[in-house]
Simulated assay, not measured.
Amino acid sequence: MSGRSDQPAPVAPDDQVIARAAVLIRHWTGMTFGENKRYYIERRLVERMAKTGIAAPAAYLDFATYMPGERQELINAFTVNETYFYREIHHLSALSGHMLPSIVRHRVPGDLIRIWSMPCATGEEAYSIAIWLLENWALVDAFNIEIVGSDIDTAALAKARDGHFSQRSLARLPEQIRESYFEIEKGHQRQIIQDLRESVRFTPANLIDPSSVEGLGSFDVILCRNLLIYFDDDARKRAADLLYDRLKLGGYLCLGHSESMKNISDRFEATRLDDAIVYRRP
């Protein structure tokens, strides 16, 4: 179903529809949008209504509820994909300087090390991990490193696999890094080299839906940054349990700079590594 010029224009959602949409999004994703986000919700509903050609807001929500494809499109419209390369670089420094050396102390060369970037948005974080380790960890070639990027936004994942990035995304990368790991600029974008595109696996996942991650296995390090701030308390606790279950014993979890497990879960052990506070599964 798609919008056509001869179809009626979408009707602006009323308060009841806005509230219902917020409840559905929270139920599907864990993300909470309060009254101060009314315009944010309304704009995204109207955009999807125009795309589907459904003019009545309540009818559109019924359609999105019972049609998985449109539900995913609506979820994609609500996600916040604010990201860039080498964001919160202190975690990358702690990864190569402390976390991985601690992990491989009990491994032998050739062993598998698994790192999960969730949410990965359009891929900058997952690719940043790969680049950082190639540049900063001397043992990068001694171990079999698997990097998995996941997100609830399937459109963002498609962009991540494609690997084209704007100058804004690349702004914090040293020139030498841009020249070594990205193709020549075309149309104000640069594509990450094929070897790196093939080195990171991208897959959909939902932190409040355990069934969505059952096939991913467990990880030595998880970066889950700047997501829990969008969740309510119940969703944060559910996400924390899922993250704990996905970590190997002794594995590390990195949260965003404004996030903490302090009032969410007591299952993790907080550890300070230089400028980074990380959480470990005991």
Rank of each mutant, 00 (worst) to 15 (best):
Arg201Ser: 14
Thr203Gln: 15
Gly30Leu: 03
Tyr60Met: 05
Glu42His: 07
Val17Cys: 00
Ile229Phe: 02
Ala239Phe: 07
Pro109Leu: 10
Arg20Phe: 01
Gln194Ile: 05
Arg236Val: 07
Glu125Tyr: 04
Tyr244Pro: 08
Asn81Trp: 06
Val221Met: 00
Pro174Asn: 14
Gln167Met: 15
Ser260Gln: 04
Thr203Met: 14
Tyr66Cys: 08
Asn136Trp: 04
Leu134Asp: 02
Lys159His: 15
Leu227Gly: 01
Glu185Phe: 06
Glu124Pro: 03
Tyr60Cys: 06
Gly149Ala: 14
Arg236Pro: 08
Gln191Ser: 07
Tyr86Ser: 09
Tyr39Glu: 11
Leu273Glu: 09
Arg246Gln: 15
Leu74Pro: 04
His27Thr: 00
Asn136Pro: 02
Gln72Met: 10
Arg168Thr: 14
Ile208Leu: 08
Phe33Pro: 04
Leu134Trp: 02
Pro282Met: 04
Ala21His: 00
Ala156Met: 15
Ala158Asp: 12
Asp62Leu: 04
Ala58Thr: 06
Gly110Arg: 09
Glu82Asp: 11
Glu42Met: 12
Ile131Cys: 02
Tyr244Phe: 15
Gln72Asn: 12
Arg71Phe: 08
Phe231Arg: 02
Arg238Met: 12
Ala239Gly: 14
Leu173Lys: 12
Ser128Pro: 01
Lys248Ser: 12
His164Gly: 09
Val278Leu: 06
Asp153Tyr: 11
Ile131Thr: 01
Ala235Gly: 08
Leu273Pro: 03
Leu255Pro: 10
Asp234Val: 14
Lys51His: 08
Leu273Phe: 05
Glu259His: 09
Ser260Met: 05
Met99Ser: 10
Glu124Met: 05
Thr52Val: 12
Leu227Pro: 02
Phe219Gly: 01
Glu175Asp: 14
His91Tyr: 09
Ala155His: 13
Thr154Gly: 13
Thr79Asn: 06
Glu175Lys: 15
Ile277Thr: 11
Ser212Pro: 05
Leu227Asp: 01
Ser260Pro: 08
Asp162Arg: 13
Gln7Leu: 10
Glu124Trp: 06
Ser169Tyr: 12
Phe268Glu: 03
Glu175Met: 11
Val200Gln: 07
Glu88Asp: 13
Ala19Cys: 00
Pro101Val: 13
Ala142Trp: 09
Glu259Asp: 08
Arg201Val: 13
Tyr279Arg: 03
Asp241Met: 14
Leu61Arg: 00
Ala94Glu: 08
Phe78Pro: 07
Tyr279Glu: 03
Ala171Lys: 13
Ile208Pro: 09
Pro68Tyr: 07
His188Glu: 12
Gln189Pro: 04
Tyr279Leu: 02
Glu183Lys: 12
Phe63Arg: 05
Ala9His: 04
Ala171Phe: 13
Asp241Leu: 15
Leu249Ala: 15
His98Ser: 12
Gly215Asn: 05
Arg107Phe: 10
Ala160Gly: 15
His27Ile: 00
Asp15Glu: 03
Ala270Glu: 08
Asp266Pro: 04
Thr83Asn: 06
Leu24Pro: 00
Glu47Asp: 14
Ala158Thr: 15
Ala126Cys: 01
Leu45Phe: 07
Leu100Pro: 05
Lys51Ser: 10
Arg178Thr: 11
Phe268Trp: 00
Ser258His: 05
Leu92Glu: 09
His91Met: 08
Gly217Leu: 01
Arg178Ala: 05
Gln191Thr: 06
Pro68Val: 04
Asp153Ala: 14
Ala171Glu: 14
Thr79Met: 10
Glu175Gln: 14
Leu242Met: 15
Ile264Met: 04
Glu179Leu: 10
Leu273Arg: 03
Gly53Lys: 11
Pro204His: 13
Pro13Asp: 02
